[in-house]
């Protein structure tokens, strides 16, 4: 065991993992995290706490992760390279570990231009691949990036993100390989809608032997409506939403579109369960946390293993 996190235990025991996601509040009130945590508790193996996603200022992901811990949901502490330099990042990793956080997800971060402070100075002192290697060094060698010895190493389960769809497609699996080489233990993918591309990418990862070294959790987001599908297709960078998704949602009565979205998500999950090289699913129901119990049930992900 590298970290002893619940996610690590579930994966190493050979179970198909199921993880969720919570966004922190835009204010000091933790009530929304607690409410969302109640829907996730017992239905997922852990939940990501996002780090100022879309560059909008929110409660810090470390603080949000600690609230999740209090509520009995294991957090996956997201850390972006946009807002902190290597000094602050290493310092936060130590603090997070000291307070019981055992999973961390290393991300570049959405560019500051998208957020509510577009004139902030982006830091990007190190990138997400380098951040993985820094945390691995702290954990496995017990030293800071600068070389000094740590008084207590942070035994984190190290996560990374992958986008199997962005250009250049041929390079995407090599970027995954770089993250694995840097020390990623698990990978959560971008929301997957283009199943063909995803199959191809996992196939490449299998061929390169990457799936023997890293656990891949496939990202699933249920579409709530035709409008949401169109918005994600046209407005969210890095998203690849094929037309068949939109057509299927259009093919049912408007009030049944959300149900159809969940049906599609469950079909995706069923396929991933049978896909060699996919170790679990990361569910990202955007502002739809209350649907997690229903989705977990309908996707036959319950009960969650206790290991």
């Amino acid at each position: 065991m590298k970290s002893g996190s619940n996610l690590e235990k579930v994966l190493t025991a050979g179970h198909f993992a199921f993880t969720g996601e919570v966004g922190p509040p835009r204010g000091a009130n933790t009530e929304s995290i607690r409410t969302k945590a109640a829907f996730l508790k017992g239905n997922v193996d852990m939940a990501n706490m996002t780090d100022n996603q879309t560059a909008m200022v929110r409660m810090s992901s470390m603080a949000g992760s600690l609230v999740l811990l209090e509520e009995g949901v294991e957090p996956n502490y997201q850390m972006v390279c946009r807002d902190r330099n290597r000094i602050a990042m290493q310092s936060d990793i130590l603090g997070a570990y000291a307070h019981g956080i055992r999973n961390v997800l290393c991300l570049s971060g959405d560019h500051q231009q998208f957020g509510d402070h577009p004139n902030a100075k982006g830091v990007f002192d190190i990138d997400s691949v380098q951040l993985i290697s820094v945390i691995k060094k702290m954990r496995d060698e017990g030293t800071f990036l600068g070389g000094d010895t740590l008084d207590g190493a942070p035994e984190m389960f190290i996560g990374a993100a992958a986008n199997p769809f962005g250009q250049p497609f041929e390079w995407r699996v090599h970027r995954l390989a770089k993250k694995v080489a840097a020390g990623a233990d698990f990978v959560q993918t971008q929301c997957i809608f283009n199943m063909e591309r995803m199959r191809e990418w996992v196939h490449q990862a299998n061929d390169m032997g990457l799936t023997e070294k890293v656990y891949i959790l496939a990202g699933v987001t249920p579409m709530k409506s035709v409008g949401m599908a169109k918005y994600m297709k046209n407005n969210v960078p890095g998203m690849d939403v094929p037309d068949w998704i939109i057509k299927r949602l259009q093919g049912v009565e408007k009030k049944k579109a959300a149900d159809e979205g969940i049906k599609i998500a469950c079909e995706q999950i069923a396929e991933f369960k049978e896909t060699k090289g996919v170790a679990g699913v990361h569910l990202m129901p955007i502002e739809w946390e209350h649907k997690v119990p229903e989705i977990a049930e309908r996707a036959n992900m319950l009960p969650r293993p206790v290991v």
Binding site: L107, S108, D110, H111, D127, S128, V129, Q130, A161, A162, N163, G166, Q167, P168, W171, R175, K178, Q190, P237, G238
Partner: peptide, 8 residues
């Protein structure tokens, strides 16, 4: 170590 996940 790019490109990042945001490439369109």
């Amino acid at each position: 170590n790019g490109p990042c996940g945001g490439t369109r």
